[in-house]
Simulated assay, not measured.
Amino acid sequence: MASPRSTAGHLLELIRTGQARTRGELQTLTGLSRSTVGHRLDQLFAAGWLAATPGQLSTGGRPSVLLTFDPGHAVVLAADLETTHARAAVLDLAGTVLAERTGTLRIADGPEAALDRLAAWYGPLLAQAGRGVDAVCGLGLSVPGPVEFDTGLVVRPPIMPGWDGYPVRERLRQALTEHAGTPAELPVLADNDANLMALGEQRNSFPDCSTFLLVKVSTGIGAGVVIDGRVLRGVDGGAGDLGHIRLHDASDALCACGSYGCMAAVASGRAVAGQLAALGMPAESGTDVRAALDDGHPDAVRLAREAGQRCGEVLATAVTLLNPGVLMIAGDLAETHFLTGVRELLYQRALPRATRNLQIVTSRLGDHAALCGAAAMLVEHLYSPEQADERLAALAEA
């Protein structure tokens, strides 16, 4: 039986991650013979997954051939569901957006209506991208709630009524088949939005950061953590639920989850909007707060900074525990006085050792972070050594 390190899937992983660029480098890294490497590469070329380009002349006068993963041989679909709207996109395997749509889609309408509406967007998007259904290799979905990753079930989401335990992957796969004509067995993966934002941002902007922490502050507050290249999800998808850490002096603040004292009930975009509304300013969401901040409204500035300070209190513990190299603040309140408040309390409360090598930054990908993360999640799953070998075997039998 072949060693796992000798399969075509493993060679693909070495090429896709840039660890090997030539046949010779593959031989050196794997210990395989030239003929075996050639046979494995033949499988990958036959599947259309690799591209070869002439390299520099070797010392013997023969030009080397550079091997690369071909990001254009297929496309992925990605979707980012928010509370009142959604983004859908077609991307190549390198995460480049080929076609995109943003539209109204209310999570509160329930999974049946939301997923059916979302699936209907993809036929026109594929046409806009100039790609057929046969090029689609899967879909990655971002949702604003905890997800049990192995099953794809949304678990007790505070702001997603009707979604608890719903078979999201199966329903979306069915809706895509009905609306866009995708295969009935199309791979669909789902994860929490903060997790996928963290994955997208880390892969695209901070690939060398071994411990990356992203905090999304919008309607609620959530965190995504990437450690040694892997998303930290916890035992059932509950890791990073930062907004539901209790504050010791906020016992009268009712949270959307039904509990009192959660940080999200005090410092989220929705909480700040509620505080502004109590002062007579029409505001319902983090987007409204951001608009007030852009207008320089003094109450909005004060409340956003105070909210950032409350978040900074909690993040001091998270930073001390995780010791990240990058802390990224994302979402509606990221590039506002909220960030000022976070910095003030974080540096005041955290140990100097925990912050001496810490970069505190805002989003690099903006509205595309979750889409890019969803695409990366899917590609890294489908082209992992195990999945790649299974897919190659299926292609050989077809």
Rank of each mutant, 00 (worst) to 15 (best):
M1Y: 04
R5F: 02
T7F: 04
T7W: 07
H10F: 12
E13D: 13
I15D: 04
T17D: 11
T17S: 15
Q19D: 12
G24Q: 11
L32V: 01
S35I: 00
T36W: 12
T36V: 08
H39Q: 13
R40E: 07
F45Y: 13
F45V: 03
W49C: 00
A51V: 10
P54K: 14
T59M: 04
R62T: 11
P63K: 15
S64D: 08
L66D: 10
L66W: 09
F69S: 13
A74F: 04
A74M: 09
V75T: 12
V75E: 05
T84G: 07
A86I: 08
R87I: 00
A89W: 06
A89F: 07
G95T: 11
G95Q: 12
L98K: 11
A99Y: 05
A99R: 09
R101I: 00
T104N: 03
R106S: 08
I107G: 07
D116N: 10
A120R: 15
W121H: 09
L126P: 01
L139D: 02
G140M: 01
G140T: 03
L141W: 05
S142R: 10
G145H: 11
E148A: 12
F149E: 07
T151K: 06
G152V: 01
I159Y: 02
W163G: 05
Y166T: 04
E178L: 10
P183N: 14
D193S: 06
L196E: 07
A198D: 06
A198K: 10
R203K: 15
F206G: 02
P207S: 07
T211E: 05
V215G: 11
S218V: 04
G222V: 07
G224S: 09
V226E: 11
G229Q: 06
R230V: 07
L232D: 01
G234R: 14
G237V: 04
L247V: 09
L247S: 12
H248Q: 13
H248K: 13
D249C: 07
A250K: 15
A253M: 12
L254N: 07
L254D: 04
A256Y: 08
A256L: 12
A256W: 01
A256G: 03
G269A: 01
A271M: 08
A271L: 10
G274L: 13
Q275M: 13
L276E: 08
G280S: 08
G280I: 08
T287A: 15
A292L: 15
D295T: 08
G296T: 12
H297Q: 15
R302Y: 09
R302P: 00
G312C: 02
V314Y: 02
A316G: 02
A318Y: 13
V319M: 04
T320G: 10
L321P: 00
L322A: 02
N323P: 01
I329C: 03
A330S: 15
A330M: 04
G331R: 02
L333C: 12
A334Y: 06
F338S: 08
L339Y: 14
L339F: 14
T340D: 15
L345N: 15
L346A: 06
Y347D: 05
L351P: 00
A354G: 06
T355K: 14
L358Q: 13
G366N: 03
G366T: 03
A375I: 02
A376I: 01
M377R: 14
V379A: 03
L382M: 02
S384P: 01
A388M: 13
A393D: 10
A394I: 00
